[in-house]
Design a protein around this nucleic acid. Structure first.
Length: 297
DNA sequence: GGGCGTCAAGCGTAT
DNA sequence: ATACGCTTGACGCCC
């Protein structure tokens, strides 16, 4: 069971990811950005290893504008050495990696150009993981997409795009996550039955939309992961008190986390803590988990 | 050097 | 209507 957090580290004393505006785009600037970002990723991963955190989500912006038409920069060639080194670091330490394309990536849209742009983005992200030399346990997580007033048709469009338009490289990494308002675990499991795509389970989204007991839900989701996918990934968060429904909490609630661990006892999965204070909560969760384990052994 | 309006992209909910 | 939230604030113009 690995513990991790997404994208940003607030402790290493420098901005975790750097990007630029489209208006100020130039090859020189984007090159500088990428160099900075890859160095930063290296520092973050070293920090994580030092703190026993072996699960990390890499920001979609690691290569800014990578799927935009303006972007012609040959980043794979120029940075092959750094990418190789990063890959070695990840593999030597057995770090699990995921990426999460942003909300604009919708492969079930009725608008073909949105699907087109989404596939370009997926192509870039799976290409990035390929350049690191990572196998198919490194995943790219997306949601099913929009409902567009007709959920059944929207599920069908997801399946159609998946089966007819995605490369095997993308498919070997793509997983779907239950969301907070549209497609719940049950919908994702149905899609899995049709096309075999693994289902990543999000605890907060399940609280928003599903009524599944967390232990049952995790057992069901775990069955969608095959040997080549690695073990189930879980996005863990809880509701920030006195905020809108679905808002990720700012800090880890130790009682809730311990309750979650006891409710899922005996199950193995990797936990991504989607909590605003990032590596702080992840480190706390790591310590709590170690304490619980030694108590039981 | 600090303040602050704005940033490639979509969708759905809350106010 | 508008703002917010989403995997994440922070870029960069203006003074």
């Amino acid at each position: 069971m690995k513990i991790g957090y997404p994208c940003i580290n607030q402790s290493i004393g420098k901005k975790s990811i750097s990007t630029l505006r489209l208006r100020s785009y130039s090859e020189a600037k984007v090159k500088e950005c990428i160099e900075y970002n890859l160095n930063c990723l290296h520092e973050i991963l070293c920090y994580n290893v030092d703190h026993g955190l072996y699960f990390f989500r890499i920001s979609s912006d690691i290569i800014p504008f990578a799927s935009h038409p303006i972007f012609q920069f040959q980043w794979k060639d120029i940075f092959s050495k750094q990418l190789n080194q990063l890959g070695h670091l990840i593999k030597e330490n057995d770090i699990r990696i995921t990426m999460h394309p942003d909300q604009f990536v919708l492969i079930n849209s009725p608008n073909p150009s949105i699907i087109d742009n989404s596939i370009k983005e997926l192509d870039y992200q799976s290409g990035f993981l390929d350049e690191l030399g990572l196998g198919s346990t490194a995943k790219i997580q997306i949601h099913v997409g929009g409902v567009y007033q007709n959920k059944e048709e929207s599920i069908k469009r997801f399946i159609k795009t998946y089966t007819t338009s995605l490369s095997n490289k993308i498919k070997s990494r793509l997983v779907i996550e239950n969301d907070d308002f549209r497609f719940d675990l049950r919908d994702c499991l149905r899609i899995n039955k049709e096309i075999g795509i693994p289902v990543i389970f999000d605890t907060l989204h399940n609280e928003c939309l599903g009524q599944n007991q967390v232990g049952d839900a995790i057992k069901l989701a775990a069955q969608t992961w095959n040997r080549e996918d690695g073990i189930l990934m879980v996005d863990y968060s809880h509701q920030e008190p006195n905020s809108r429904k679905g808002k990720h909490s700012n800090t880890l609630n130790h009682d809730l986390f311990e309750k979650f661990i006891s409710n899922t006892k005996g199950l193995d999965f990797d936990i991504m803590l989607e909590i605003k204070d990032k590596e702080k909560s992840a480190t706390q969760a790591r310590l709590l988990l170690d304490r619980i384990k030694t108590k039981h052994n």
